[in-house]
């Protein structure tokens, strides 16, 4: 079982390094013939790297997707906001108890449109990770989100959310201040909206903490993102008393984007650049941005009441069950 995305990206990282060094030599080379020759070698390395990435990433298993979704090089919410928004004013207050840096949000201008963006935010190094609490929001994060949803409703702004959290914060403090109520209230708040809503799972869609801000008319997942009712390690610990069987649990839980699409739980899977969003964050952001704008264009045609009804109906039909007296008899015989 792979422990990190670097396990299979090692050849890529090595090739990247070789290409970088060789390119530096090319840049300094003055002899035109030698320069052409070296350039061709760079091209050759790049072809080999891309061929590896293409084959490797077209057959990523569920566990490998979990690792990619958690990769610290993967673009985070603020990377998407920076890439997609011309103007963004982060609003930090929950007006209740504290600032929560695991959820960020505020009004922004996206492709010339006023929108309210809200998303989980992770950190890349030790300091950042601790500041962002590993992307695990406390009640305050969800209460800030509710405040921003309500403001979006007042000022008629579409709500755009980015989902990327391992889970909501499970600590004693969070329990004391009602993490469960905060998540449920955030979902309720999204159901009340009469403005367009779009949610994108950009990394880890970790159970209740994720769906707390993912109650949208249009829900999308990036190709290598995961969305799950329970972390695979937690599932393995309960089922097999072995957290290290995370890979098996990831497969059983079917937490990948194609499964979510197959079950009708997301509307769209957004393709990622060669080798994952982290290989080309800008291209990844542009794909996400185009899909958001396309959905807003469709939702613009609906009235507020229709948007609210569509959102409720979207979740209302989710579930896998049979209902008929005949099926009932068969199941019990």
């Amino acid at each position: 079982m792979a422990k990190s995305w670097k396990d299979w990206e090692k050849p890529v990282l090595e090739l990247d390094e070789t290409i970088r060094k060789l390119q530096a030599i090319v840049d300094k080379e003055t002899d035109p013939e030698r320069k052409t020759e070296l350039s061709e070698r760079v091209q050759d390395y790049m072809r080999r790297r891309d061929a590896y990435l293409e084959t490797r990433y077209s057959r990523l298993g569920p566990w490998e997707k979990v690792l990619i979704a958690r990769a610290e090089t993967r673009p985070y919410t603020l990377d998407y906001i920076n890439a997609l928004c011309e103007d963004f004013v982060e609003l930090e207050g929950d007006r209740r108890f504290a600032a929560d840096h695991a959820i960020v949000g505020g009004p922004a201008l996206m492709d010339g449109r006023r929108v309210m963006v809200v998303g989980h935010q992770k950190g890349r190094n030790i300091q950042e990770r601790s500041y962002r609490n590993f992307g695990m929001a406390k009640p305050e994060g969800y209460r800030k989100a509710i405040r921003l949803f309500e403001m979006a409703e007042r000022f008629r702004m579409p709500v755009i959310t980015f989902v990327d959290t391992p889970a909501a914060d499970p600590g004693v403090e969070s329990e004391s201040r009602g993490i469960s109520e905060a998540i449920a209230a955030a979902m309720l708040s999204m159901f009340e909206l009469t403005v367009p809503t779009v949610s994108t799972v950009i990394g880890e869609g970790g159970s209740g903490g994720a769906i707390g801000i993912a109650v949208a008319n249009h829900v999308m997942m990036q190709e290598h993102a995961v969305y799950s009712v329970i972390p695979p390690e937690g599932c393995a610990a309960i089922l097999w008393r072995a957290a290290e069987k995370g890979a098996q649990a990831a497969a059983a839980l079917q937490l990948t984007s194609d499964s979510a699409l197959k079950f009708g739980l997301v509307e769209e899977v957004l393709p990622e650049p060669f080798g994952g969003a982290h290989r080309d964050p800008l291209e990844a952001a542009q794909t996400v941005g185009r899909a958001i704008m396309a959905s807003l264009e469709r939702q613009d045609k609906l009235s507020g009441a229709e948007l609210k009804a569509e959102r409720a109906a979207r979740f209302r039909r989710m579930g896998a069950y049979a209902e008929s007296a005949v099926a009932a008899v068969l199941a019990e015989s």
Binding site: A184, M187, L188, F191, E192, S207, G208, A210, I211, A214, V215, Y227, S228, V229, I230, C235, I238, L239, L253, Q254, L255, S259, A260, F263, L265, R311, A312, F315, R316, M318, G319, A320
Partner: peptide, 23 residues
């Protein structure tokens, strides 16, 4: 809590039941 054996479908029941409360 949610039944993990039905995967993401179980997570979606959280939103579905919440929509009923809204109604």
């Amino acid at each position: 809590g949610a039944r993990m054996q039905e995967g993401l479908l179980s997570l979606m029941q959280m939103a579905k039941t919440t929509a009923a409360v809204e109604a």
